[in-house]
Nucleic acid binder design. Structure first.
Lengths: 232, 232
DNA sequence: ACCTGAACACCGTTCAAGT
DNA sequence: ACCTGAACACCGTTCAAGT
């Protein structure tokens, strides 16, 4: 005797669609195959559903991307406010954001393309602002500081100058490349040569990125702290 | 008696296609209607040509975008190296880049999406590196500095925290918004309130962006200079 | 209320054919 | 050598129809 098919358990017994389920699936797809793999059609296929069914839970693709990014930002651990050390708390907060973004590299491009920010993102920025305020940083300085730190507040290493691939090579390969470039790009080739010889700097590109990120972050925080002290 | 139709002057008398002409047309299209208006098909239509004809002068869309961006970077004025004031020269160079990028706002997204950098871009970075070297900045510090300045070297104001739209509103509108947000985003609403009252800060969003850009740039340059002096 | 399929208006690009 | 048109494999989304 066949069981009665009641709502929520159609002939396939598959869990019904929901915004949550759609967004989670999209996030998994992006994590695994990068953002260009996330099309409405492929996502639907992944969920075993007609492409048009997605539109019952997401108004359009922009909404989908926004929801995905909110999921990521919600994943960032919020650091406790430490009245005695706003700089340390802020540093920890930004590094926490970076950890999350490293797990979801596609989020950067989506966030930068977004035009209006969601409540989730506002909440994160409000938390960061709270850290500044806990240290008595003036609103005006905090405002400029937020602009200055830029997308690094969310843990992005905003580099156009990405030489991490270069330094994946062995020193002798780099030396060869550097000599070939010497005529046209004398300064860059000089830089490549020296850095490839300096073993303490080159410890694998993953570590390098972390070093450069913290170097930049500390330079920014030190500068902001200096202005804060000068003002008080 | 009909004129003979010779090469270069087909029945329409239109100038023949060339890489240069394709790239210039694409740039004009992007300048006027933003980057999403630049499709192979629309570009071909703009040129009065079959879409497939473009592929004789451009290997694919990626090549097209790369060529467009090279055109932009080539537009940046290169500042003379000033041995006595590397910081001032660098500042001037970055602000020159910013002027160019303001004329071609679409270039930022294309540049950030690019994976490998062209000779044109390498030449620009080499010029920037030359400015550092002219001031005797060590290669190691210069390397970190380039990573720290990040995409700002090319004049981008890398802001996720874009409140320029907000401050386009009148003070009373902002005050209303701030009060509505107060419960959920106490720190941000406090910031909005104060900034909207401070008339010297809000002089139109265009000017604001310039101020924030220079504020961030100077903070970075001052930090780098401090490290440079500490090392020597 | 939720899901579906056909259809529309777009993409970039391959390939064989024209001149 | 350069250009063309038809065709292919994709997009996001509207709309009318199903349950």
């Amino acid at each position: 005797m066949p069981m009665a098919t009641h709502a929520g358990e159609r002939k396939t017994g598959r869990t019904p669609l929901s915004r949550e389920r759609v967004l989670r699936a999209a996030m998994a797809l992006a994590d695994e195959h990068d953002i260009e793999a996330v099309s409405m059609r492929k996502l639907a296929q992944e969920l075993g559903v007609d492409p048009m069914s997605l539109y019952n839970h997401v108004t359009n693709k922009e909404d989908l991307l926004g929801g995905m990014v909110d999921l990521v930002v919600d994943e960032i651990d919020l650091m406790p406010v430490d009245d005695g050390d706003w700089k340390g708390a802020l540093r920890a907060q930004v590094l926490a954001a970076r950890q999350t973004m490293l797990r979801h590299p596609w989020a950067r491009g989506v966030l930068e393309a977004r035009t209006d920010s969601s409540p989730t993102i506002m909440r994160y920025f409000d938390a960061v602002a709270g850290i500044f305020r806990s240290g008595g940083v003036s609103i005006d300085l905090m405002h400029h500081a937020l602009h200055t730190i830029g997308s690094r507040v969310l843990g992005f290493n905003q580099e156009l100058f990405d030489d991490s691939n270069t330094f994946d090579q062995g020193p002798e390969v780099i030396a060869l490349m550097a000599h070939q470039m010497a005529a046209e790009y004398p300064n860059l080739s000089e830089m490549m040569l020296q850095i490839s010889h300096d073993e303490t700097t080159v410890v694998g590109s993953g570590c390098d990125d972390t070093f450069e990120f913290e170097f930049a972050l500390d330079l920014l925080l030190d500068g902001i702290e200096r202005l804060h002290h000068a003002a008080s």
